[in-house]
Nucleic acid binder design. Sequence first.
DNA 1: CTGAAAGCGCTTACAG
DNA 2: CTGAAAGCGCTTACAG
Lengths: 356, 356
Amino acid sequence: MKDVALYAGVALKTVSRVVNGERGVTPEMAGRVRAAIEELGFRRNESARLLRTGQTASVGLIVEDTGNLRYGTLARAVEDIVRANGSLLFTGSTDNDSERERALALALCARRVDGLIIVPADADHDYLRPEIAAGVAAVFAGRPSNLAEADAVLADDEGGARDAVAHLIAHGHRRIGYLGGPPGDYLAQRLRQGYADAMAAAALPADDRWAALVPPTREQVGQAMQGLLAASVTAVFSGGSEYTALAVRTLRAAGKAGRIALVGFGDFEFADLLDPGITVVAEDPAEMGRVAAELLFRRLAGEAGPARRAEVSTRLIPRGSGELAAVLAARSALPVRSVLAALSVACAQRWLRSAS
Amino acid sequence: MKDVALYAGVALKTVSRVVNGERGVTPEMAGRVRAAIEELGFRRNESARLLRTGQTASVGLIVEDTGNLRYGTLARAVEDIVRANGSLLFTGSTDNDSERERALALALCARRVDGLIIVPADADHDYLRPEIAAGVAAVFAGRPSNLAEADAVLADDEGGARDAVAHLIAHGHRRIGYLGGPPGDYLAQRLRQGYADAMAAAALPADDRWAALVPPTREQVGQAMQGLLAASVTAVFSGGSEYTALAVRTLRAAGKAGRIALVGFGDFEFADLLDPGITVVAEDPAEMGRVAAELLFRRLAGEAGPARRAEVSTRLIPRGSGELAAVLAARSALPVRSVLAALSVACAQRWLRSAS
DNA sequence: CTGAAAGCGCTTACAG
DNA sequence: CTGAAAGCGCTTACAG
């Protein structure tokens, strides 16, 4: 810029005026400046401008994994709103490692991003307190944070699970299994809660053997599914498309593909091309991204007031697998004496309860 | 930083030394500075530092759509290498709009990113010439650019298409259809070339009615697929997972799902769970991202020399649909007189050619 | 070992 | 309408 001023024989400020399109420059002067800019190939350094201005017109998005379609979709929705607001978007993945989340968020804050949208690796965000105090806006998406003062969007995972299980119950199922992540996992926890609530609402028992809480590896899910089948469930609710895929594989291998009902949490491409088509409760990651970004830019526009909580709903999409009727376990592999034994245990328990 | 210096009663430079961990500061002094930093909640402004340094430790990635799994996967691979090199990553989507690509790239350059990885919306990148001259490193990925001086990675799409078609030919097919994007589309063009080459290599004719070049909408692809069936193909090569999905739908609707062979370009989740499993030629977007990022950081590390060209290969994954044997069109709907007419036209043409 | 000065590329606030 | 000076938050190059 200095060079341009020198070349055009004007003051620095005049160049600045032309570059910023401020009025109050004679056409003749502006022309000279523009010629100099052209001649010297001048390109304003945005970072320098922003240093002076105090804003950076950039925001950061931190998710579990940008290579996961769910988060890719969320990222894209965020990006569109970021662009509409004239900002640029940094993205980063944590792989659910809270240490990595922290490092990323702090690095972004050191660049003085205007705001941050974070899908928390875990709930603890004390490390962000000083940054927020220093003026960074933060919005949490998809999972809860301990920072009550920040805006947040959550999905109605629990409601989705309830819908799924209620759907199965409506189709005559009583023995419904739940297949999902380990207890430490936030989503798995909420889905299981929804499952339990729906069962309870229908006054159905939820046998412990009907809940398979395992990491999404081929072996573990396969075994867990077989366990559910051994426990004579007539339907399964699977908590995530990885689980759904592996559930379908196990059902096929066991020759029960069209007989055991299945509702999956999370939609996926080609779900309607499987046989039967897979009924799912679809999340809406794009909507979540949109809402999060909108909350963020409201704050950046100066909105004060208490933290906002938004919720994104889920939607059940029937495709066949969730509408299979309950198959009575008439020819159950369970020996008659086991059934009788189980029944008598249940009777005894009820008798004991009523007696106490 | 000035405040910290004042508070600690030292010079600015001493604070800088402590913050940067430079040696040559008495422990006592360093302690005082650290206390002041703690007390004041000082956090160094990375942008300001980088302004002085000249580098920004950030790179930009521009793809068609981060919400598309293919590009999400690529982005994730890029991110990992960017992180390993201590940089931060900007991402942006173009939706194949070259004007948007330009605006994004230029905005990133104005922020003085160290480098840019671009999946070109179109080949023209003259707009980047001044930026590259000014020192930005650029790598193109997935599609060609007219900037011969920049590094580039391309996929062996054409080879993948050849493999797919050769695979079908090896399974006895002679009448093979190609279903893909319109002629203007880069990928579609290369796939069709590979298809044509494989047919020619096997001395097979490639009837014009066997090539369906349409945008990936449900109606158009459905109609095009029906056209291929009407032309009595026994196998189809589909150029992209959108096309593959719609091809499967049409085949099902026509009751030809297990009879017409199908090889798709581009792998997708659940491909092995369809019936039959879908044979595909898989791309490797993660590898493409990795290679592109590595090329970029080599340049940033100072590597000179001529532009590099890298190629990422594809891999055929047999799953059933591509191994179906050719079904003879014994009961072809084609009336006998049409066949005779076609034959006589071909004879006449050959006679004309030999006569001239 | 410590510090005062100049400068990265721009803008803001004020004179003329 | 135009410009000289100061400053954004840091580092570099040089003295002491």
